[in-house]
Amino acid sequence: MNNDGCARGDIAGGSDGDAAALAGCGTGRRVSYQLYIDGGIRLVADAWLAESLLGVLRDHLGVMSVKDACEQGRCGSCSVLMDGRLVASCTVLAADAAGAVVTTVAGLGAGGPARAVRAAFLAHGAVQCGFCTPGFVVAVTDLLARRPDADEDEIREALAGNICRCTGYGRIMAAIRSIQDTRR
């Protein structure tokens, strides 16, 4: 820990070769650092320190699939996986996500469960205005990867952090059940 009180201290602490650790703190309130997003390293240049991961993904990195509906962690539109866990990116400090593996809808992969989820959402009408959809796709893919045979109660509980205002959730449930039925 050096004593300038700056995030540079992290470099000393992070000498484990952590490529995405905070690379520097700059001279003021703007910082540059790297994030590991969807399998690639992305440079965040000259960002305010207090920005959320949601804000940095959208405003600095142009990852617009992460949606900003409430920015309070209450709607799930900005859901991503962080180190494999479903989180609301509006509740994550972006600079503190350095070193973590962040997965958005684009990073879920072209095959496997994500592909099945995408196809089922389209085929079963789980999309209307679509604003909640990328967050839902992340949450559903995460759920089915962990609990492929989740029963109805478990599905509803696991997705209760994702608000959809259009569909009434019926077609979303239908899409999920169709994926489970196909697997069986």
């Binding site: 617009m64 992460v66 949606k67 389209l122 009408g125 679509g130 990328p134």
Partner: peptide, 21 residues
């Protein structure tokens, strides 16, 4: 017919541009 939405795939992938995007 239960035709799927033409904008559905883009909305699912998050590439559909909303006004705020």
């Amino acid at each position: 017919r239960s035709v799927p939405r033409p904008d559905g795939a883009d909305k699912i992938d998050g590439t559909f541009p909303y006004a705020g995007d």
